[in-house]
Design a protein around this nucleic acid. Structure first.
Length: 489
RNA sequence: CGGGGCGUAGCGUAGCCUGGUAUCGCGCCUGCUUUGGGAGCAGGAGGUCACCGGUUCAAAUCCGGUCGCCCCGACCA
């Protein structure tokens, strides 16, 4: 780095840029164990806001939290054939406990379907016990070969929802409902637009009937699978004997769903909104929404600027918002840094709104508000700064979503596309390509082999092209469904 | 697991080829002056040179081995 104050630019090296932002904004740090990470307070603060919001959304749709154990008997994993096949390569297995070799090894959960449905089987007897709507916040372990901060680590934090229903249709409805909730969260809070749709069989969750996904486009035009929701059918209920007596008195297997999002979302946030100055956090998820930077020249100035700044922090902190939350304000009192250095520091950390207050401002009963997303400055009266800040924060939130959506659309290609053009795009800048697909796994496989692009989803109706491609991207046969192709994280 | 790179102060590094007890920058501490876009000066603290073994009067440096981490590929939320 020629100038170690500056970040590597996104254009020069996107993945170096990403690592630098995560480390320097103090979201996370490497741990002594390969592939594991420490989530630092600034990163965890974002996660806590995500958790709180999602948790409220889950509760509002009737789900309740519970906690299931970290350790699962190995035999449980083996019961569902596809499931064990899918997860076997990445399991961490505990073979010893209390100084002795265990009779049956225990796996550290890579996901909790098996233990949860085994328990559900004990709890459900009658259709009156359904639906059973459970969520848990937990850590899971998957022994990945290649790891990246937040995006892929050996251990990560997530929530996994698990439900049991009396009918297929109810389970399907639940599966779709949760995709909708995820989408609302990602767009409404993260300002990260997503394409929703169904996964092809090759990308389906191990053991599911169908998998739906929310796919976001990162600034390098690669797709990030941001959340998934699975209709598990009766695959797990059959092997764990999750049965119930129907209203008519028959015995039936329950229908299950599971759905999850993880700390990977934080990586998505960085790669959606970050710029060459650092992180940009959407206001609704920002642990600090407004940072006050006081400016002074003399001791006398310092005293009255600080006094004014403290009052401002208090009054903003008590400002009523549309939600029961208050404005989250931080006053930067560090006296060993010049204001300019503080600006760079808070820009790196992504605080959405900066409030500059100097002697001249105090005299004039005003302050300067600076948007992190656009850099735009405006001078406002101290009498109205609460309203002004609130309006600006809402605007920033909206504008960030719009900007991200515009960028995604500018990097999307629709309609029939030649194979030559497709490979050129995937080898170059990349894009979301809505192309025709004949439905054969062979074409899907060949395209992946040739270009590393995969079908991210078969998009839901509202995302499909008004004039979709007519021919399969690979074989040229008539297209049976429109598919969204992209390289993925 | 293949390919590449790197381990020297909290961080980033020079020194290694050609052996002689470690350089510089940032950060940190103290003081003074500063503060509206990355402050200046002066003084100061901070090191098992990743680890183990070997060669040598002498090893960060040469030789052998081990470990770890990062990056790029095959698998993945």
């Amino acid at each position: 780095m020629a100038d170690d104050k500056k970040l590597t630019t996104r254009k020069a090296d996107f993945s170096a840029w990403y690592n630098e932002v995560v480390l320097r904004a103090e979201l996370a740090d490497y741990s002594p164990v390969r592939g594991c990470m420490v989530i630092r307070p600034d990163g965890y603060g974002i996660w806590e806001r995500m958790q709180r919001t999602l948790d409220d959304m889950f509760k509002a749709t009737g789900h309740r939290n519970a906690y299931f154990p970290l350790l699962i008997p190995q035999s449980f994993l083996s019961k569902e054939a596809e499931h064990v096949e899918g997860f076997a390569p990445e399991l961490a297995v505990v073979t010893h406990g209390g100084g002795k070799e265990l009779e049956e090894p225990l796996v550290i959960r890579p996901t909790s379907e098996t233990i949860i449905y085994a328990m559900f089987a004990k709890w459900v007897q009658s259709y009156r016990d359904l639906p059973l709507l459970i969520n848990q916040w937990a850590n899971v372990v998957r022994w990945e070969m290649r790891t990246r901060l937040f995006l892929r680590t050996l251990e990560f934090l997530w929530q996994e929802g698990h439900t049991a229903h009396a009918t297929h249709d109810e389970a399907e409805e639940e599966t779709r409902r949760m995709v909708g909730i995820y989408r609302d969260f990602m767009e409404g809070y993260m300002a990260m637009p997503v394409i929703t749709g169904q996964k092809t069989n090759s990308e389906r969750f191990a053991g599911a009937l169908r998998t739906y996904s929310c796919e976001a486009q990162m600034q390098d035009n690669k797709a990030l699978q941001a959340g998934t929701s699975h209709n598990l059918g009766q695959n797990f209920s059959k092997v764990f004997e999750l049965k119930f007596q129907t209203e008519a008195g028959d015995e039936a297997f329950a229908w299950n769903t599971s759905w999850g999002v993880s700390t990977r979302l934080i990586g998505g946030l960085v790669m959606t909104h970050g710029d060459d100055k650092g992180l940009r956090v959407p206001p609704l998820l920002a642990p600090i929404e407004i940072v006050i930077v006081p400016i002074w020249r003399t001791d006398e100035d310092k005293a009255r600027v600080f006094e004014s700044a403290k009052k401002l922090k208090t009054s903003l902190g008590e400002w009523e918002r549309r939600e029961p939350n208050r404005l989250r304000v931080h006053l930067d009192t560090r006296d060993n840094m010049k204001p300019g250095a503080k600006y760079y520091d808070w820009e790196l950390r992504g605080v959405p709104l900066r409030l500059e207050l100097g002697p001249r401002d105090v005299d004039a009963n005003q302050c300067v508000l600076v948007r992190r997303d656009t850099g735009a400055k405006q001078t406002v009266s101290l009498d109205t700064v609460g309203e002004d800040a609130e309006v600006l924060l809402e605007k920033i939130q909206d504008d960030m979503l719009t900007a991200a959506r515009d960028r995604r659309e500018a990097n999307s290609i629709r309609g029939d596309i030649t194979w030559a053009r497709f490979t050129e795009v995937m080898e170059g800048e990349g894009a979301f390509v809505y192309a025709g697909w004949c439905g054969s796994e062979e074409c899907e496989r060949q395209i992946k082999e040739a270009t590393k692009a995969t079908i991210r989803v078969l998009p839901d109706e509202e995302f499909r092209s008004s004039e979709p491609a007519t021919k399969c991207l690979k074989c040229g046969n008539p297209s049976t469904v429109e598919a969204l192709w992209a390289k993925a994280y």
